[in-house]
Amino acid sequence: MYSARITRHNPTAFIFLIDRSGSMEEKIKFGSHTTTKAEAVAIVTNMLVKELINRCRREEGIVDYFDIAAIGYSSGHATMLLGGKDSFAKPSILAMQHCSQRSFSRERVLPNGHVVVTTDELKYWIEPKAEGNTPMCSAMEQALHLVRKWCKQTTNKASYPPTIFNITDGEASDGDYQTLIRIADEIKQQHTDDGHTLLFNINLSSSVEDKPVIFPGSKDDLPCCRYAEMLYEMSSQMPEEYNETIRHISNCHCEPPYRGMSFNTPIADMIAMMNIGSISINKI
């Protein structure tokens, strides 16, 4: 399980569900800068998309090892940000896509103590946005439809199962907890011969005083909060293959199995979670 090689004939799939509601306008620390949550999430997601594309670069050009989709949710509806109406985007298409490009600066402290600012160019396939409410249920249903269709394709039968990241900072406005858990359960039921779809739920923190919980082992690791418990139930139990890597970043000091969720997550930990969640890219 969770061991299938990723090839051009057996790609794997990634879906990003991105909260673009009004609360994502709040400020958050990102490295040495302060920016909005929406901007930080856009940077991190675009960096992961770039990583996925670059992993596909071969001598002969870009080989489509991945199917990538992004769904933004705000203002009462869920919108496909990457890919077609109900389809995935291919890295070869994304690489050629015209979209805005921005310089992204980071401060680096070198071993000799010097501080340098490094600048990278980052394409923005996914633009930051923060307005309206949080129709998470609609987004999850759209993700369910996508992943169901993907898993049913015979070409994907033997593939590494899809990975979904749901990045949010608040509660859904279009459904209760029961509905969300049900849709999440349906998503997790979708599978290939190599395993079930992995659903990660990342709840962003609003304050540095919030205590983060990353990859909990049980509900006992959660704060006393119904919303956190809901996210726990929505999230996938992580396969054994991920345990070693999770152990390095989980702050719960617990034994596996871990849940693919984080609560009150600072951006640095969100990056770590998404890197762990995309560990399958090493199976190319």
Binding site: E51, R55, R106, T118, D120, I281
Partner: peptide, 18 residues
């Protein structure tokens, strides 16, 4: 240690002192 391709790209893009 968790390094991905983007980390290498950053260093190669900014080679001074690297």
């Amino acid at each position: 240690m968790y390094i991905n391709l983007s980390n290498y790209m950053e260093s190669v893009s900014n080679p001074n002192g690297r």
